[in-house]
Structures are given as C-alpha cells and as structure tokens.
Computed example of a mutant assay.
Amino acid sequence: MKRRDIVLASAGATLGALPAWAQTPSFPKPGSTIKYVVPFPPGGLTDVMARTVAQKLTEAWKTSVIVENKAGGNAQIGAEQVAKSAPDGSSLLAITLTHAANVSLFPNAPYSLTKDLRPVALLAGSPMLVVVPTGSPVKDFKDLMAIAKSKQLNAGSSGNGTPPHLTMALFNDLNKTQMTHIPYKGGAPSMTDLIGGQLDVIFSNFPESIAHVKGGKLRALAICGLSRHPMVPDVPTAMESGMPGLYVENWTAAMIQAKTPDAIVDRYSREMIKIMFSADVEERARQQGFRVSPKGAGDFAVFLKSEIERWNRIIRTAKITAT
C-alpha cells in the first residue's frame, strides 16, 4: 500500500465507524460559500498554503472557498471568529505552531483551542533554520553550542512567543545556556539587523532566511528538521550536529468549530490529504520550504496535544510571556 493510501485510510479511520448515511452528507450545499480564515496577514506561508488548498477545494467541490485574512492579537482574532462560528462547516481556520504555544501564553483567551475548535488536518511543516552573519566567528552548529556557553550571545526573533523565540528557548534548555532574546516586530527587521551584525544568531522561519543564505549574506548552521533540506543539502540537521532534541517545524493545519458533525470533518480531512498529495501541490509546497506529511483529524489531534504540552514546558521553563 502506498504512503498516501495509508494516510487516506487513516483519515477515515480516525473518526470511527460512521453510519452509511453520515458518510455522504449533503455538504457543501450548491451555491454556498466557505470561509478559510487565516489569522495572519496576506503573503506568509500559512496564507499561501491556505490559498492553494482553497483553490483545490473550490475545484473539487464546485463551490466557493474564500480565504479571509483576520490578522491580529497574536493570531487569536481569526481563531476566535471560527471558534464562535456556526458548526455547519462553512468556516475553516488555518493554524500553526503559534496557536499551540498560545494555549500557554494566553490562558485567559476569549476562546479555547482545544474545546471550541476541533482538528481537521495537518497539512505540512517548515523546519526552522539556524543562521548567523557570514562574518560571524561561529562557523558551524557545534561552534554555536560551545560559544554560547562561554559568551553571552544575542538571538533575535520575530516577537515574543513566536516560533523563532520558542526554538531559541528550546536550544537554551537543551544546551544549558542563556542567550539574550531580542524581539522584533516581524521577521524582516530581525533579518536586517542580523545581516548588519547587530545580532549574533536567529533560529529563523525557513522562508525568512533562505534567500539571504542563498545570496551569501547569512550562513546556515543547521536545520531543525528530521532530515536535510533539498534547498540547502549541505546544511546538516541539528541532530547530525549533536543536538537531536532541537527538532522544530512551524507547521500549518486546519481546524473547525468544535460541534461540526463528524461527517463534514471527515470529508474535509480526506479531501485535504488528497490535495496535499497531488503532484503539483506537493512540488509547490516543497519549493516553498515545506515538508509535506499530512495527517488526518485523529492523528493531527494527537500531534496537536503533544505540541501544546511540549511548548507549555518550554514556555514555563524559560518564563516566556507574550509581551
């Protein structure tokens, strides 16, 4: 059995045995509109992935699937909108690692990720890339591990509680060091200062740094993935470099209002996995830096729980706050 066939079979099995009538719901209704809410500004990887999936859903179901950007509140505004939407499958939410961390960063949020929303599918992940200026004395990842123990280093990020910040905190936890965290309002300004030498290192989102690595302005020390990345095949993984625990992917996934019927969730889950395994989408995703390894609703639920628990521990250990 092929890998995609196994995953597709898993997608159906994860929701349990549904009665025959529930396996073919009249969803979506002809002429209806589905909102795919992205709680980030347009143009980012999550937005690009959502638009790709929305287009494919539109083509497959002959209905209108529209991406709606609802940025703000550390990705909580859009999430709250879907959490409080009608449980009829008409609203989807794009989520990332940020939402798993938000469970700990915002304990008094106006919605509950785990109670007001339910998993639909995990789509893909983009590994974090550890980068330094090309003129840095840090030549490889083992250098970084050693120098961080003997000298106070400054590590930039796109903001408090963001994936680059969390990855840095995980590095500190594993390496028993204390880098100084310098938060920025976004990834671009932090990259500018890293290139200019005002920062020592960034545990960056892959798409924010890869062009600078290719252009010779930054040196990539390690990739925080399961394997080397085809866009930078000479860059070893953190595991190869002596830190197997530094595995971090900024993944993207879909959730839906918690009371949405199983049959609708199952239909979304199966179709999204099929979309991710289609040749054109899989290739496009890889070119954007993603590792394509989708999971159905049940497997994604297990993964999401583990991510929430993992980052809760790091956030508490590093005493990370959202501000």
Rank of each mutant, 00 (worst) to 15 (best):
S150Y: 11
G125C: 06
L129R: 02
N205I: 14
T192Y: 15
L170Y: 08
N102P: 04
N172K: 06
H181D: 03
M145E: 14
I147D: 10
N205H: 13
K142M: 09
G187P: 02
I195G: 07
A121E: 06
A155V: 09
M179H: 02
P163M: 00
G216W: 10
K151E: 11
H212C: 15
D193L: 06
V138M: 13
R118D: 11
S112T: 04
L218R: 05
I147A: 09
T192S: 15
S204T: 04
K149W: 11
H165D: 01
L153H: 08
P163I: 00
Y111K: 02
S209I: 05
F141W: 02
P164K: 10
A220M: 04
L113H: 07
H181K: 08
M145Q: 13
V132G: 03
A169P: 00
F203N: 04
K214L: 14
V138W: 05
N205F: 14
A155M: 07
A109S: 14
L170G: 02
Q198Y: 13
S190I: 03
P133Y: 09
A109D: 07
P183V: 00
G187D: 09
F171K: 05
A121H: 02
G196D: 12
L129M: 03
N175G: 06
P137R: 15
P127A: 00
G225D: 10
R118Y: 10
G159C: 05
N160P: 08
G135C: 10
N160I: 02
N108K: 11
L105Y: 00
S209L: 08
A148W: 01
N160Q: 11
L199Q: 05
Y111W: 05
R118K: 14
F206Y: 12
D140S: 03
A124T: 11
T177Q: 05
G161W: 00
T180Q: 14
K185S: 14
L153D: 10
S150V: 14
T192P: 04
A169I: 01
A155K: 00
N172R: 08
R219Y: 09
I195P: 13
S158T: 06
L153S: 11
T114R: 15
P137I: 12
N102I: 04
D200P: 08
K149E: 12
P127Y: 01
K142L: 06
G135S: 12
F171D: 04
F106Q: 09
F106I: 11
G159D: 00
P189C: 03
L123D: 11
G187K: 00
G161L: 01
D173F: 00
S204V: 07
L129E: 07
G215W: 08
A155D: 07
P183H: 01
S204M: 08
G225T: 01
K142C: 10
V138T: 11
S204L: 09
I202S: 07
N172W: 03
A188P: 09
G196T: 05
F203M: 00
N102W: 02
V131N: 04
D140M: 05
